[in-house]
């Protein structure tokens, strides 16, 4: 009986302890303070559905944040970032795999000082027998969805919604007068 109890305790404790998922990872460093390479198998889920039971078809078709429920320990990882250094999230990369079990490779952020855990930057994805694909399609999808914003420079300088907010609230968000004062003092 004690042996069974010990096994059960080990099972309970394992998801709580920090596990090492770095084996086999080919994740590229971003030189972040708390980054840890992590490659693991997980199911792609709609986070809001998972928590509250509000479940539209197809994980919300890319409109909702997605989670990765890790096969090894049932932990729900939150992928915040894709592999592009361009202020771009992970949903566009993972949405095609809603409900599927896939393999991902990237960087986990584990920072005790900020209570950051199970936060992830996904760099590549492998679905079934298919080859690994890079998680770097966000800007291409944005360009396809915004032909009216075509032009030079990064997407975030051309995005219509961002430009509209900055035109009315300024870069600092404190109004155009505050922007003018800041520019005068700093340029």
């Amino acid at each position: 009986m004690m042996r069974k109890l010990t096994c059960l305790l080990a099972l309970i404790a394992s998801p709580l302890a920090a596990q090492d998922f770095s084996e086999g990872s080919e994740a590229r460093s971003w030189n972040l303070y708390a980054e840890v390479p992590a490659r693991f198998e997980a199911k792609v889920v709609d986070v809001l559905c998972e928590l509250s039971g509000d479940c539209p078809d197809n994980c919300g078709d890319g409109a909702r944040q997605l989670g990765l429920i890790r096969t090894a320990d049932d932990v729900m990882v939150l992928p915040m970032k894709n592999s592009q250094p361009a202020f771009t999230g992970a949903v566009a990369e993972l949405a095609p795999f809603c409900g599927q079990v896939i393999e991902v490779d990237g960087l986990m952020i584990e920072d005790e000082d900020l209570n950051a855990r199970n936060i992830y930057l996904v760099q590549r994805i492998k679905a079934g027998e298919a080859d690994w694909i890079k998680a770097n399609t966000w800007t291409k999808k944005w360009a396809e969805a915004h032909p009216e914003a075509a032009g030079k420079g990064p997407w975030f300088r051309r995005d219509p919604r961002i430009k509209e907010v900055i035109a009315s609230e300024g870069y600092l968000g404190l109004g155009l007068e505050a922007d003018a004062t800041y520019a005068e003092e700093n340029f």
């Binding site: 939150l78 970032k81 202020f87 995005d159 961002i162 900055i166 600092l172 968000g173």
Partner: peptide
């Protein structure tokens, strides 16, 4: 650091990240 990525200093970047789909 965390104190630098909040408020007015980070407003424009917060717009970029929100529009970019980051939570």
């Amino acid at each position: 650091g965390p104190d630098a990525v909040v408020g007015s200093a980070h407003h424009t970047c917060a717009l970029w990240c929100s529009a970019g789909g980051i939570p």
